[in-house]
Structure formats: C-alpha cells, structure tokens
C-alpha cells in the first residue's frame, strides 16, 4: 500500500535558501566558463589574424624528383634549413602577406603547362615551354645562403642552371645592359593579386653583368624535387648575394633592356628597397638593423656578412660604387 514510503523527515529536506544557492552556483559556474571561453576564444581569433573563414588551398600535386646532373662547386657546407621550414615560411605576397599564407594558399597556382617569353635586346627572342627549357640545361644542385631583407636567413639546396647559360643562348645584343623579369599576373591563380598590396605583376631586374655571373641561378627545384608552388614554381631567380626579394618567383617574362628596369619593392618604398639590394651589414634598412640576422632554427643572432658571404666572387662587380647610395 505504502509504495511511496514515508516522507523523509523534515530535517533531511534541503532548506529552500540553500537549494536556491545551489542553482545559483551552477548558473554562475556556467557563466564563468562561458565568459572565459568567449574572452579566450576571441583573443585567439584576433591572434590568428582573424582568418578563421579563410579557405585553405594547399598544393595537391606533390613535388616530384628531378634528375641532378652535378653538384655545384659554389655550395656552402653549412647545415641546411629543414625542408619544412623552407616550404612553410615564405614571402610570396601573390598568395597573402603572412609568412604562412603561401603554403596554405598556393594550391591555386598551375605550374604546368608553363611558358617563358625571353625577348628584348636579343638576336633570338622566343617563347619557351618549361619542359623544353629543362631539356636544354643540365640541372645542378647549389646550396646557397638566403638572406631576407627582414633579417632572417636560411640555407637552401636549390636545383637549377645558371641564368647566363639561357641568356647566351638567346644572344643578347650590344644594347642589352639590364635584364627585366616579370612574375605571372593572374588573380585567379594568385588570389593575393586581387588586392593592390603591391603593384602587380611583380617585376625585378639585374644589371647584365650580375645576370651573367656564374652564381646567378634560375632555379626549378629545391631539395632534389620540383619547386613547391609557395617557393615560386615552376621557375624562379636566385641571386645569393642579394636580399631575398630580388629572387623573383613564378617567372613568365625575361626581357633584355637598355635602361635600368623598375623593380616592385623599389616602387613601393624607394627609400627602403634599392635596385641593387646587395646584402650589406653596414647599410641598415631605415626601420631595422641589417648588421645581424637570425638563421632559421637558431636562437642567437649571427653577424650578417657583406654580400651574404659571397664578396670574394661578386664584390668586383661594384668596384668604385658607393654602396650607401646604390643600396
């Protein structure tokens, strides 16, 4: 009959004020958790550059092995920057201004089929298919120091051939005093070009003697494989004694010209980035010192060397020039 049993004694019943306090406690605990999660989450979102919605487009095609015909004699023995760092820490504004953007977003670039137009003051102007170009020159590996104008550096095993070999093949005329390079302009493939952070397309230039110098490389690969998109696939310039921004990426045009060509960073900030941009610890960037650099992977800064340690080979190119004026 008495299924419900007798009611508990009055002394066992939680007093109403305490019962309400318990509910209040649970409510406050929930609100505390929500507040800390909300504040912390918002801060993490702001730290990430507010890019939660940005869609990632990593490269689908993996870099493939390239045949290496010979080891370059100019290679440094310094320890190489790990592949992961070389391919995830990039300045390639065509895919965004954060260092991690190119690795995340360069999947939209199609490095094949690819052609390069070589023209201007040459006897044999031509449009060259990249695979044809690869057949002309044996690839050699060159391990070079790479010094960014932002005062960090890497050691990268590039694969490529001397730019001079290509230039000689198209036979420059006597009026060819400079070489002008152009990056692909295609805002579909290079979404960063949809905003005018820089004056697109990216252009760079070298004096003809710099371009013909045996250290100057047209690179098609690194670490024994084709260039990942974020490193400037399928063809980029490497000038190891100059700041990294001279190494124009994803090249579609090489023109030999009579007058010094415009260069992108020089146009953007002429007092900060010169045409020559030779690595020089004695000439500071207006906003930071160039005396030292951080080698990626190292804790302590190391001194920056004149011409990035290639002075013996290239200092002669600038004999008699005031390198403070021609920075």
């Amino acid at each position: 009959m008495t299924k419900l049993g007798t009611p508990p004694p009055a002394s066992d019943v939680t007093p109403e004020p305490l019962y309400l306090r318990r509910r209040e406690f649970v409510r406050n605990a929930a609100l505390f958790t929500a507040t800390s999660a909300g504040a912390g989450g918002s801060l993490l979102w702001l730290m990430s550059g507010r890019r939660a919605g940005k869609k990632s487009s990593r490269s689908k095609g993996n870099p493939v092995d390239l045949p290496v015909a010979r080891q370059g004699t100019e290679s440094t023995n310094e320890s190489r920057t790990p592949y992961r760092d070389v391919t995830t820490y990039n300045n390639f504004y065509e895919f965004g201004t954060d260092k991690s953007d190119p690795a995340e977003l360069a999947g939209t670039l199609r490095p094949r089929p690819w052609t390069v137009r070589v023209d201007g003051e040459v006897q044999k102007p031509q449009v060259i298919d990249l695979d044809q170009l690869l057949g002309w020159f044996p690839l050699e590996e060159r391990v070079y120091r790479m010094r960014c104008v932002e005062a960090w550096s890497m050691v990268i095993p590039w694969l490529g051939f001397p730019l001079g070999d290509l230039l000689r093949r198209v036979e420059p005329t006597s009026r060819a005093k400079y070489v002008a390079f152009t990056t692909l302009f295609d805002p579909e493939q290079m979404p960063g070009q949809q905003r005018r952070v820089l004056d697109w397309p990216y252009v760079e230039g070298l004096r003809i003697d710099e371009a013909m110098h045996p250290l100057t490389l047209l690179a098609v690969g690194l670490y024994g494989k084709t260039l990942p998109n974020q490193n400037g696939a399928p063809l980029r310039l490497v000038v190891p004694w100059k700041y990294g921004f001279k190494g124009i990426k994803s090249i579609v045009g090489i023109r030999l010209v009579e007058a010094q060509p415009p260069t992108t960073w020089n146009l953007a900030a002429p007092h900060e980035y010169g045409f020559y941009a030779n690595v020089n610890p004695a000439v500071d960037h207006p906003r930071w010192s160039q005396a030292t650099e951080r080698r990626i992977g190292e804790l302590r800064r190391r001194p920056t060397l004149p011409f990035n340690g290639y002075a013996e080979q290239v200092a002669g190119l600038y004999a008699g020039m005031d390198l403070r004026e021609f920075f």
């Binding site: 609100l31 505390f32 507040t35 800390s36 989450g41 918002s42 801060l43 993490l44 730290m47």
Partner: peptide
C-alpha cells in the same frame, strides 16, 4: 555578476598559455 571578472581573467591568460 560574480562570474564576470574571474571569467575575463582566465580568458585573458589564454593567449600566453597558447
């Protein structure tokens, strides 16, 4: 709002922890 200040305090430590 007894939860407000402690909640923001803990949230504010998230960046350094991260």
């Amino acid at each position: 709002l007894p939860w407000l200040k402690p909640g923001v305090f803990v949230g504010a430590l998230v960046p350094v922890a991260a």
